Computed example of a mutant assay.
Amino acid sequence: MSGRVLIKELDLRNGHTSNTVADRMNAVPGFKTSAAFFSFLRANLVLLPASTLNSNASTPLLDPYSSQALPPLQPSSLATMTSNAEDEASLPPNSLDSIPTLTTAILTSEADKVAALKLVADSIAQQRQLASVAIIYHPVIIAAYIFLLAITSLFIYKTTSDILIMVTTCAGITMALLVVVQGWTSGYVQLAEEFNWKFMKNQDGEEDTIIGSRYGEQLIGALILRLERNGNGNGRKKSKGGKTGGRGIVRAWTTKQRYRGTGVGTELLEEAVRVTRERLGNSAEIGFAAEHANSKMLLPEMFNRGFREREARAARALEEVIGIMDAGSKKKR
């Protein structure tokens, strides 16, 4: 628009207007191209057929042309990379099928029973850690430790040059106290070594029932259940349904340390309640034995608070399982 206005003004100054392209181009100073050249070029373009105007690679085609046909689309190289192909081949059709299942049932083979006894023995040895923590963090022990370090520092520290000796002495006292604690709690390791097959046999030589939780092929939980029937010999009293009454006693209950808090222990208790009522009747009671595998406490009572709390939590867990199973059986009726 600005060029046309400029041309219009120039033509008006000369007293006439120009309508041709050649006139407009020649009206602007700096354009030296003649009108005859533009007329000749326009005539040649009109005479040439559209098929003879081959477009270069850098210009778009205005008409369809077979030689300029685009190649067919090929899949991206990223879609055929070797790593992607290997990943797709390695993935299972359903990734959930590769997750091992958790099964809880009565153990029958001798190998499984031995593995369950080893889990119980490990739980006994692990009580040493709880006992050590109970000693180290007891308020009385902490107060005595601080008092001992203070007395030692008072006698050793005289000048700033005694700082290194004081620190070394306090570190030695700390190490000596840790050795004492280690020796004090070593009895739990001995109890674990003494735990053997005799634990699961009663006075009549009858073996207890061992229930195990298996994650895939790995045994991760164990429970030892003793069934005590009412009466003895042929004089056993039978409850409704033809089953003898009695009670189930949980004598050991443990889970591998890395799987604790995942519900494996609860499933073991549920299976123990089910087995007890299946064999002794629905009226059978179930509870923890007073002398279970982890009942022995080698420390003075002032350090046994953690053990007592663990026993209380276990009793509450069993009560909750019994309550849930009773409520479920009532709904089924």
Rank of each mutant, 00 (worst) to 15 (best):
G3V: 13
L6K: 07
K8R: 15
K8P: 01
D11K: 01
N19S: 10
T20R: 03
N26W: 01
V28L: 14
P29G: 06
G30L: 04
F38P: 01
N44F: 12
V46L: 09
L48Y: 08
P49V: 01
P49A: 02
N54D: 05
A57L: 11
S58R: 06
L61H: 00
L62Q: 10
Q68R: 10
P75R: 07
S77Y: 03
L78E: 02
L78F: 04
L78Y: 03
E86A: 01
L91W: 00
L91P: 00
L96Y: 05
S98Q: 07
I99C: 08
T103L: 13
T104G: 05
E110M: 03
A115R: 13
A115L: 11
A121W: 05
I124M: 13
Q127P: 00
R128N: 02
L130V: 14
S132P: 00
I142A: 03
Y157I: 04
Y157E: 02
T159Y: 05
L164M: 05
T169L: 12
A171Q: 08
G172W: 09
V180Q: 09
V181C: 14
S186Q: 09
G187K: 15
V189A: 15
L191H: 11
E194R: 14
F195G: 10
K201F: 15
E206V: 14
D208T: 04
D208A: 12
G212Y: 04
R214I: 11
R214Q: 12
E217A: 06
L219E: 09
I220M: 04
A222F: 07
L223T: 10
L223R: 05
N230R: 08
N232G: 06
K237S: 07
G241T: 03
G245Q: 09
R247M: 09
I249S: 02
V250E: 01
A252F: 09
W253I: 08
Y259V: 02
G261Q: 03
V264L: 07
T266D: 06
L268P: 04
L269W: 05
E270S: 03
A272K: 06
R277Y: 07
E278H: 12
R279N: 13
G281F: 14
A290Q: 14
H292C: 15
H292A: 15
M297W: 12
R305D: 14
E311F: 08
A312S: 10
A314N: 13
A317L: 13
E320Q: 04
I324E: 08
D326T: 08
D326C: 06
S329V: 07
K331D: 10
